[in-house]
Amino acid sequence: MNPSPTDSVSDLQEAVPAPAISRGRRFSIVWLIPLIAVLVGGWLAIKAWRESGPTITIMFKSAEGLVPGKTEIKYKDVTVGKVETIQLSEDLSQVLVTATMSREVANYLTQDTLFWVVRARVAAGEVTGISTLFSGAYIGVAPGTEGKPIYRFDGQEKPPSVLPDTPGRSFTSRRRSWAHWISDRRSITVRSGWDA
């Protein structure tokens, strides 16, 4: 028997079987970090993809006050789209405004959808769009109701005097004698409840 402790250790090491060495747990907890990154990134991508709607083109006579990447398209003062680019048509007669719309209004972009530029206007008897003096012009939209979705629209020069969702019936007066107090082809709304 050797009294040296180191030798007794080496004797022991040869006498007893070697332990089974496993590499420990294979999955280190640090891999949760990229996993979370993937989840967050994927969630952002899905969110962006789900919220992106169709791209449409609107033709206007002039792009006055419209800024690509900034001008918004609003319905009831809620932003439903954004102008991406502004180009001239091939014969230079019109301005082509491309805009991405949000997904929620995609089904309402039909034949009878109206677009117009809201800017400060002083017309007979009314002043509209004062807020756009500071915020810049925006594009107003009146959603369509029927038909298939389309992606090219003719923009109106003036806002429609009666929005399609205004309750009531619209009539157009052709009588000459009214002309002095009704300005050019202006429609008159008869509120529902009054007609019967």
């Binding site: 640090v30 967050v40 990134g41 952002l44």
Partner: peptide
């Protein structure tokens, strides 16, 4: 300890986060 897999985990996570960091 575990230097290689820890560093890789952080580098990969950083690469993924770099995309929204530049797009948003």
């Amino acid at each position: 300890p575990n230097s290689i897999s820890r560093t890789w985990a952080c580098v990969i996570a950083a690469m993924i986060f770099y995309i929204p960091a530049n797009l948003l």
